[in-house]
Design a protein around this nucleic acid. Structure first.
Length: 231
DNA sequence: TTATAGATTGCCT
DNA sequence: GGCAATCTATAAT
């Protein structure tokens, strides 16, 4: 089924979501356990594609399917925040796996990562783009965007890009940094609803100046919600 | 204490 | 395609 059409379905009734399963299936979906993240970020990144990021604001639920991520390794990766060892800013990266590492960038934007590797070893995965699944109207409101149709060409501005998706989900450092994403009780969590990505592509990472050659950006090819970096 | 670069985005020509 | 916005962690004095 074409991506845009699937998304249109969610916008109308919010009773179904891509994959055709009932909403209660999504809400009952189990978070990925800490063991899932206690591995090499490259493997975690690949397997995060197709999973759901869920935000629970009281009764209001936001959900987006992960369609683009980047792996950042530990102290061997010059592009990683963990490269020069633990600091007040990046301590989450050296802590337990499955925690949110949220940082503020360019004076305007927050970026969301999930910590990988066992405690004591750094590594993370950056969330770069989501396909909106639930709470599209709320996302549009938070993003100060007027959405006139359910076409992916419009909806992509909600969550296509690391700064956009955090704004759409109300993710900030103050609220979410170091939060456990593996708990079913958490208001921010990552769940598996059984969706399987057909295919995965790997490309160079975006927006960095060091270690630019490594193919550590992973995405679902053809998905219209993947971000479009500028040359 | 000061300087600088940054895992981005939106708006301009 | 170019560039300003706008903050702050970290490096350099």
């Amino acid at each position: 089924m074409p991506q845009a059409k699937r998304t249109a379905k969610t916008l109308k009734g919010l009773t179904e979501y891509p994959g055709g399963k009932p909403l209660k299936s999504l809400l009952g979906a189990q978070p990925l356990p800490a063991a899932f993240y206690s591995r090499d970020p490259r493997q975690v990144a690949r397997e995060l594609l197709g999973k759901l990021l869920v935000r629970q604001n009281g009764g209001q639920v936001l959900a987006g399917r992960v369609v683009e991520v980047e792996a950042y390794l530990g102290q061997d990766d010059p592009a990683a925040h963990a490269y020069s060892g633990p600091t007040r800013r990046n301590f989450v990266l050296f802590g337990p796996p499955g925690r949110a590492y949220v940082y503020f960038i360019y004076g305007n934007h927050y970026c969301l990562n999930v910590s990988c590797e066992p405690a004591g070893k750094a590594g993370c995965v950056l969330f770069r783009a989501l396909e909106p699944v639930l709470g599209i109207e709320e996302m549009a409101s938070t993003r100060h965007l007027q959405i006139e149709s359910s076409r992916a060409a419009e909806l992509r501005f909600l969550t296509s890009g690391p700064g956009r998706l955090t704004q759409a989900f109300g993710i900030t450092r103050q609220r979410d940094n170091d939060k456990d994403l593996t708990s079913a009780n958490s208001d921010l969590r990552i769940v598996d609803d059984g969706f399987q990505a057909d295919d995965i592509s790997a490309t160079k990472r975006v927006g960095i100046v060091k270690a630019t050659e490594e193919p550590l950006r992973f995405l679902i090819p053809g998905n219209p919600f993947v971000s479009r970096p500028r040359g």
